[in-house]
Structure formats: structure tokens, C-alpha cells
Amino acid sequence: MFKKRENVVEIEEGNLLSPKFDNDGLIPVITMCSQTKEILMHGYMNVEALKKTIETKEAHYYSRSRQSIWHKGKTSGFVQKVTEIKIDDDQDSIWLTVDIGNGASCHVGYRSCFYRSIPLGPIENGREVEMKFTEKEKKFDPEKVYKGQPNPTKI
């Protein structure tokens, strides 16, 4: 689908897309809000998800737990409209900038999947590191939105 990875100079300095997918056929994706610049989520894409994202201008990911393509927001209504796609220097990770309006990106109901902060400093007992919630209110109730659907996370 995309240009074959042939040499480092082309990959790092060339202008043709040659993404490096891992042994499972996936490439990591970090997604940022175009308005607030906050990180909304981290996910993965396979070739098909990347192609659909480029073509539709809406984020598609590969769900490792469901083993299928997932059109972000199709169920919740909070579709991620892609405003920019960047790829890192060795083309093995993707950075999406998306517009979600006043919506959310986290299946738990928060705006961002990064809704907790880990305290910095000495760790006396790793089993008792207490995180701080940085988002206080959910944008939607996951029980209502995803009723009857399998939990999208894999524990």
C-alpha cells in the first residue's frame, strides 16, 4: 500500500510515506486536540486504518482487543475529524491532530484518556501511589453509550 522502506536516507529525509509497522502490523498513534493542544489518547493503526484515516479525514484505529478496525466516535458520536497527520523521523509513530468539538475521546467518558496525574517524587510503596484526577466531569455516560457492547479495553 505505502512505499517500501528501502534505505535510511529515503525514510528520514525523503518525502514519500513509508511507515514502519511492528511485527503485529501496527504503528502507534498519539492523538492531540486541535483546539486545546491536549493529548487525547494513544492508539494503534494498521495499514487499513491509516489508509481510511487519510482518505476520510476521520480517525480510524485498530482495536487490539476486538482485532478489528474502529472508526473513532462512530458509537459515541464524538468523531475525531483529522486536521493534520504527522509522522516521526524514522516513520514508526504517528501524531494526529483532531477536532472533537466539545466532545470526548475516552471510552470511560472523559474528554481525554489522560485524565489522571501521577505524583512526582520518592516512592515509598509502589502499590500505594495515589493519582490525582485532572478531569472532574465526564462528557458522557459510557454505560448508556456503549450498552450491550463489549468493553473496548483489554485487561
Rank of each mutant, 00 (worst) to 15 (best):
K138G: 05
A59E: 11
P122I: 08
T134W: 01
E135H: 08
G126W: 06
S65P: 03
E55L: 10
T97Y: 12
G126T: 06
V129Q: 02
N125C: 05
Q91G: 03
R64C: 10
T31D: 05
V79H: 13
S65E: 03
K138T: 00
Y110W: 12
S65A: 13
R64W: 02
S105G: 15
G103N: 11
F140H: 08
I39Q: 13
I87V: 13
K57Q: 12
T83F: 03
V108G: 02
I87W: 00
Y115H: 14
P142G: 06
S76V: 04
S93H: 03
I123D: 05
V98I: 11
F140D: 10
I39M: 09
N125F: 03
E130T: 12
E124T: 11
D92P: 01
T97W: 07
S65I: 11
I118D: 07
S68T: 14
L40G: 00
V79S: 05
E48I: 04
K51P: 00
H107V: 09
T56E: 14
E135A: 04
H42D: 00
K51G: 00
L40T: 02
E143S: 15
N46F: 03
F78A: 04
A59V: 10
Y44D: 06
K138V: 01
T56V: 01
P122G: 01
L120V: 15
I69N: 13
V108I: 07
Q80A: 08
G77P: 12
R66M: 09
F114H: 07
S117M: 13
S112G: 04
K51T: 14
D99V: 04
P142H: 08
N125D: 15
W95Q: 09
E38I: 14
Y62G: 03
W70M: 11
T75A: 04
E137D: 14
Y61L: 12
S105L: 07
L40Q: 02
S105T: 09
Y110F: 15
S112D: 01
K51V: 10
G126R: 11
